[in-house]
């Protein structure tokens, strides 16, 4: 039954893990490739901000009466899981390609849950949309870095 009627709590736990994973990934990326530091300086911190934004919105919106047993019908959380393990011999371009894929997946996840939570009080889907947009902007930035890295190579 998991993945069919997903609770709001499960979504929040997933987001906490996703943002934590993202932050750790960008910490590692900026540590291993000096050239990424300036461009990706805020990416790790952004993960913590995204998490705070969503958790705060959820905690301030959820009430026992309206949202407690809300289900995200048909959502497959496993399908939204991300891979953030950088191989030891990965090149900078490999790492950027992984980052682009991560942002793409994260954006798709946030857009998906925003769409599925339209009947929750507006604040929750709005918070998901905000993070989806941020993730999309990051994907574009990463894509241009990747294009430049590939052109340089």
């Amino acid at each position: 039954m998991e993945g069919v009627h997903v609770t709001t709590a499960a979504i929040i736990s997933f987001i906490e893990r996703l943002e934590e994973q993202s932050s750790a990934f960008y910490d590692e990326l900026t540590e291993r490739w000096e050239e990424s530091r300036e461009a990706l300086a805020t990416f790790s911190e952004d993960g913590r901000r995204n998490r705070t934004l969503v958790v705060r919105t959820y905690q301030e919106t959820i009430s026992d009466a309206l949202e407690a047993t809300y289900s995200f019908e048909g959502l497959d959380l496993k399908g939204h899981a991300v891979d953030t393990a950088l191989a030891g011999d990965a090149s900078y371009a490999d790492a950027l390609a992984m980052a682009v894929a991560l942002e793409e997946k994260a954006c798709r996840f946030y857009s998906d849950v925003a769409e599925r939570s339209q009947s929750l009080l507006a604040t929750i889907p709005r918070a998901f949309q905000r993070v989806a947009k941020k993730r999309e902007r990051r994907r574009l930035k990463l894509q241009s870095l990747l294009d430049a890295a590939e052109a340089g190579a």
Binding site: A9, E60, T61, I62, A65, A68
Partner: peptide, 11 residues
């Protein structure tokens, strides 16, 4: 459930 408890805490 934890969602219900969080809702109760908020209220």
């Amino acid at each position: 459930t934890i969602d219900e408890s969080r809702g109760e805490t908020r209220r």
